[in-house]
Simulated scan of single mutants.
Amino acid sequence: MHLPSASNRQQTLLRKLNRKKYRYKERLFLIEGARAVQQVVANNSVRIKVLFFDESKRYWEQEDWREVISEFDTAMVSQELFREVSDTDTPQGVLALCHMPEEATVDHLASKSGLIVALDGLQDPGNLGTIIRTAGWFNISGIISGKGTVDMFHPKVVRGTAGATGTIPFMNGELPEVFDTMEHKNWQIFLLDAGAGAKALNEVTSIEKGVIVVGNEGHGIDDGLMTGERNRVKIPSPVGVDNVESLNAAIATSIALYDLSAKVG
């Protein structure tokens, strides 16, 4: 089977999409890697515009790709260009150019129940990718990305989601205003905070609608979000364990989702 070569316009676009402003201008982003692309195809979670293949690897000739290829526009690119636009040291040879999903509105998220994750200045792409992947596992109701948080369509974030990109409703917004709206709709705000005065997660007994807030890796949650009626919660450490300052943001979020998801209802 012969694939057409990517056009000059497509090649230029692939180079530009490593920058956030172009992703949002074009409303397009990239998913890299055979497993991630196949997972997105299976999930039908985002709309694929074009599949690109590294001409040196010729994956399109493999049997497990033939049916996939028949469903989408496809093109091949040179090994040099693939390495240039790839986010990994050892590219797998498959890229999906995808339409960015539409953002949810705060009213739409507020109409739901269960758990939502809110991100306050989370900056590490690997952490965010893991959080999205874990949130998908627990079937949470949405993700809210606040000021200073890394773009969830950053290539490293998308790679970290392992194909979960697009499976969860999301929005970008100013957290103080978003939280005010959510609280008016009877959502409880749970701020992950290891500081003095925070109560242990196991003290939370039941939740109908809860927002778990994850802060910046170095500075935690902005003080302005810690109003009196909100719940500062922490993951209690085993007695005598004090040799680690705090948990990684993604790990802490995973533990909180595991604990609190069992209390929803």
Rank of each mutant, 00 (worst) to 15 (best):
H2G: 07
A6N: 14
L13K: 14
L14E: 10
K16W: 03
K16L: 12
L17I: 06
K21V: 09
K21L: 12
R27V: 04
I31N: 01
I31H: 06
G33C: 08
R35N: 09
R35S: 09
Q39A: 08
A42R: 13
S45L: 02
I48C: 11
F53P: 04
E55Q: 00
E63F: 09
F72K: 02
A75I: 08
F82T: 05
S86F: 03
T88C: 05
P91R: 11
A96M: 07
C98F: 06
E103F: 02
K112L: 14
L119Q: 08
Q123W: 03
D124F: 07
D124Y: 11
L128G: 06
I131M: 09
I132C: 05
R133I: 08
G136T: 11
N139T: 01
N139G: 01
G142Y: 10
S145N: 12
V150Y: 01
D151A: 10
D151G: 07
H154Q: 07
P155W: 05
V157I: 14
T161C: 11
T161Y: 13
P169L: 09
F170I: 01
G173W: 14
G173D: 12
V178Y: 06
D180S: 15
M182F: 14
W187D: 02
D193L: 08
A194R: 08
G197A: 10
N202S: 03
P238S: 15
V241C: 07
S246F: 05
A252S: 09
L257H: 05
D259N: 05
L260Y: 10
K263V: 00
